[in-house]
């Protein structure tokens, strides 16, 4: 049996130095993907370099927005109220990855660096304009997440580089974001499709901002109907889609079509159609292409609605629907 050496650096520099000096080495964080690949014999590293004991990777802070260290686990993200409130889409995603046991060890950087088309946290980070902080042997650099993904399991990381963390800018208070993970099973599942949206709305009328005004109205669709004529304008928008192309992508045409418009459910339906046209979903055992395309239309609309809902009724903690 060929085994591997296991290294436990305690600083980022040590980790990078090890990566530079060792042959056939692989970073491991929570290990929920790496250990599976090793067992499946799809990966046979000579060295594993653990990122689990590097304190520089495992913190979060509010700093001109929010910074999340690469080694932060999904459970830590879910448990963070600031993220829940200001970066809800990421909270949505982190709360539905794998299972509790997986979330307790799996890290944000692991999910992103795998660069799977189905990576749940990718879409939220895309719509939250996240930048990836990369540490390398010689320098640190920061790139937009959109530029980080190159294709299935391929990233912009160069030899010897690793992800230190993710920085998300601050958004004004009229911003809401959502991630909808469409699955067959309500837990322990990969998405058939993942849709994230972030919307910042400009608020004209006087009613808004007072959620009590809407407490008797059940759905956001009805609230929007109620607000017709109030000129709720979309000031900023991002839409991202997972599992519909070789890498998680933004629906940029759809975003452009929504920007500056007065929002309505009908408009969202049109936007969702545009988003669907930007995707290249495929048939797989996990879902059929036609269905994925159809669901882009449905879920993009729902993600936009939910995002606005979170602006208008910010105190309602929203959990993604659990359905078959």
């Amino acid at each position: 049996m060929k085994g591997y050496e296991y290294h436990k650096p305690s600083t980022v520099k040590e980790a990078i130095d090890l990566m530079g000096s060792l042959e056939n080495a692989k970073f491991i964080a929570g290990g929920t993907d790496v250990m599976v690949l090793i067992r499946q014999k799809k990966l046979s590293p000579a060295h594993l370099i653990s990122l689990r004991n590097i304190s520089d990777l495992s913190f979060m802070e509010t700093a001109n927005g929010f910074f999340i260290g690469g080694g932060v686990t999904h459970s830590e993200i879910v448990g963070n109220e600031f993220i829940q409130k200001h970066y809800s889409a990421l909270s949505d995603a982190a709360g539905n990855i794998g299972s509790k046991q997986i979330r307790n060890v799996a890290t944000l950087c692991g999910n992103i660096c795998n660069a799977a088309p189905s990576a749940d946290s990718a879409c939220p980070l895309l719509v939250l304009d996240a930048k990836v902080l990369i540490a390398g042997p010689d320098k640190e650099r920061e790139i937009a997440l959109d530029d980080f993904f190159l294709g299935p399991n391929r990233t912009a990381l160069e030899k010897g580089e690793m992800v230190k963390g993710f920085h998300m800018p601050p958004f004004n208070e009229n911003t809401g974001s959502t991630y909808i993970k469409h699955t067959r099973r309500a837990a322990m599942d990969l998405p058939i499709l993942g849709i994230a949206a972030r919307v910042t709305i400009k608020i004209g009328g006087s009613q808004i901002g007072c959620k009590d005004a809407f407490c008797t109205i059940d759905t956001i669709s009805n609230i929007l109907k109620h607000l017709e004529g109030e000129d709720l304008v979309c000031e900023d928008v991002r839409i991202a889609m997972g599992v519909v192309s070789p890498k998680p992508i933004r629906a940029k045409k759809a975003e452009a079509a929504l920007l500056g418009k007065v929002v309505s459910e009908k408009l969202f339906e049109e936007i969702a159609e545009i988003a669907a046209s930007e995707a290249q979903p495929r048939d797989s055992i996990r879902g059929e292409a036609w269905y994925r395309r159809d669901m882009i239309k449905v879920l993009t609309k729902r993600a936009l609605l939910k995002s606005i809902d979170r602006v208008i009724r910010p105190d309602d903690l929203i959990h993604p629907d659990r359905l078959w």
């Binding site: 067959r184 309500a186 837990a187 599942d189 990969l190 055992i285 996990r286 659990r322």
Partner: peptide, 16 residues
């Protein structure tokens, strides 16, 4: 067999 894992064979979880 294309889905011989608990991930892809959709046996119900407690959430289902």
């Amino acid at each position: 067999l294309k889905n011989g894992t608990f991930l892809d064979y959709k046996m119900p979880t407690v959430q289902d």
